[in-house]
């Protein structure tokens, strides 16, 4: 068992894979505190959000106070302190999508799922965010479900798309 694996052992005795992945990234920055953003981006990918336990690991390994890490996490919209749904719905509210009516698409998603932007359905299946330009302006207005992009949206198409994931 190497150093990283030793540190990744959970109280149950098994290796915590997520923690192991995070520690590998931390080791790769070689103690460089200025690379905090890289580590946080990695944590966000690994866990889908940045749990307190991950913040603690980062704090200990990079010797940065928890408060400072929390400050950085809450500053950037890409970092989240709460887990996202299994299917994270994003409706683009970038200017190009907005002038083509993406607000109405967003309203329709809210109505169907019964949640607001930033919310998650009680079963943990869907969460909803409004995004700033996913870069597919040629397909505006655009809605995303995890990595899948749905272009040329209008409110009447929302239900069929969501039904695919129910």
């Amino acid at each position: 068992m190497n150093e990283i694996e030793k540190k990744s052992v959970c109280t149950c005795g098994e290796i915590d894979d997520n923690k192991k992945k995070l520690l590998e990234v931390i080791v790769s920055v070689n103690g460089d505190k200025s690379q905090l953003m890289k580590v946080l981006n990695a944590a966000q990918e690994i866990y889908g959000y940045i749990p307190t336990s991950a913040q603690k690991t980062i704090s200990e390994e990079l010797d940065i106070p928890m408060a400072e890490i929390y400050g950085v996490i809450t500053f950037y919209t890409r970092f989240s302190l709460e887990p996202k749904g299994k299917y994270n719905i994003g409706v683009c509210l970038g200017t190009a999508c907005y002038v083509k009516g993406s607000q109405m698409v967003l309203d329709k998603v809210k109505e169907i799922l019964g949640i607001d932007v930033g919310g998650i359905t009680p079963d943990g299946k869907f969460s909803l965010v409004s995004t700033r330009c996913v870069g597919a302006c040629g397909l505006a207005p655009v809605m995303t479900v995890n990595d899948e992009v749905y272009g040329n949206m209008d409110p009447s198409k929302v239900k069929d798309i969501l039904d695919k994931y129910v």
Binding site: K33, S34, M37, K38, L40, Q44, E68, F75, Y76
Partner: peptide
């Protein structure tokens, strides 16, 4: 490469530098 994480203000030159250094992009 240094990655941003979704903050419009980080396009401002001094905020960008704060962010490159791993802090809040103020």
């Amino acid at each position: 490469i240094r990655l941003g994480a979704g903050a419009f203000v980080c396009g401002e030159e001094t905020a960008l530098m704060e962010s490159v250094e791993g802090r809040r992009g103020e």
